[in-house]
Amino acid sequence: MTSKYRLTIFVSEDTFPALKKAGYRLCIAKEVNGKYDVAFQTVKDIVYQSDFEFEERFRVFGTRKFEVGETAQPFTRKVPLLSGQELTLDVDGVFSPASGPVDPSKPFMVNNQYAYPLHFGVDAVVDNDYNTAFVHEMAVLSGEIFMAPKKKLLIWFDKGLETGMMFNHTVSNCLQLDFTETNDLTISYAAPSKTAPEKGIWSFGPLPVLGQTYHPETNTFSLTPAILPSEDELRRLGELLRLEPPTHSKRQLAITANGNA
């Protein structure tokens, strides 16, 4: 299976302007060592459709601290490697080139010979650029350090995070995605209220579209009776679409092509 995988995110047109106005960002974190602790990618300009491409290429580095709300400042050079490979950080803080066979099912390893504690971090690729995806929260001393990036992502909206920023708070109203068996996923998000856009619902697949039939002789659309909602739901749907509430039977609802009821 290719190391590249793609994600498409739809946010309903009634929700994304409210999210932007409230100061939310679309946030993506990548699982490494069973954790999510860095904002791998954030998007301030939330729009109807966002597309991302990820690739399982990595860089490893050492940093002196894990600080919530800050971006990791590398203390060592950042060295590229792939899953299954290994490298050495010597007593002077110099990395060797990566070596060994590539195996996507295995972690990569740092043989740390440096005499002082460091936090080790991982960069991964999103949209052809390296972004920091993980930093060890606890500093480690000399020895073998294993890091296991997974093709798993966490998606949510947050006000305080920027790309590359470390965090340790619990993420709420999120969706976890697993690309282990697929290279392409589409998800969607919609909130029932513009005043609380952060309380929306995540779903797999594109935003739902009601079944409808076009009538050329009258230039109208009619909803499919089998999926027609209740009268109360139709009133709320009318408000959502900025239409007049229906005054006739729900099985005779017709919506004209230019948006008038």
Rank of each mutant, 00 (worst) to 15 (best):
V68L: 05
V68N: 05
G69S: 04
E70I: 00
E70F: 12
T71I: 00
A72H: 04
F75G: 03
R77L: 13
K78H: 13
L81E: 06
L81Q: 05
L82R: 14
L82H: 13
L82A: 12
S83E: 11
S83G: 13
S83T: 08
Q85L: 07
Q85H: 13
T88C: 05
T88F: 01
L89Q: 09
L89E: 02
D90V: 03
V91C: 00
G93F: 00
A98R: 06
D103F: 09
S105W: 02
K106L: 10
K106N: 07
P107R: 04
M109F: 00
V110Q: 04
V110H: 03
Q113Y: 05
Q113F: 04
Y116F: 13
V122G: 06
V122K: 08
D123H: 15
D123V: 05
V125F: 11
V125C: 12
D127W: 07
N128D: 15
Y130D: 09
T132A: 02
T132Q: 06
A133G: 15
A133I: 07
V135D: 04
H136L: 10
H136V: 08
E137L: 07
M138T: 13
M138E: 12
M138K: 15
A139V: 10
A139H: 10
E144S: 11
A148S: 14
K150P: 10
K152D: 11
L153P: 04
W156S: 13
W156Q: 15
F157T: 11
D158L: 14
K159Y: 08
L161K: 11
L161N: 05
T163C: 10
T163V: 11
G164L: 01
M165C: 12
M165A: 12
M165L: 10
M166P: 05
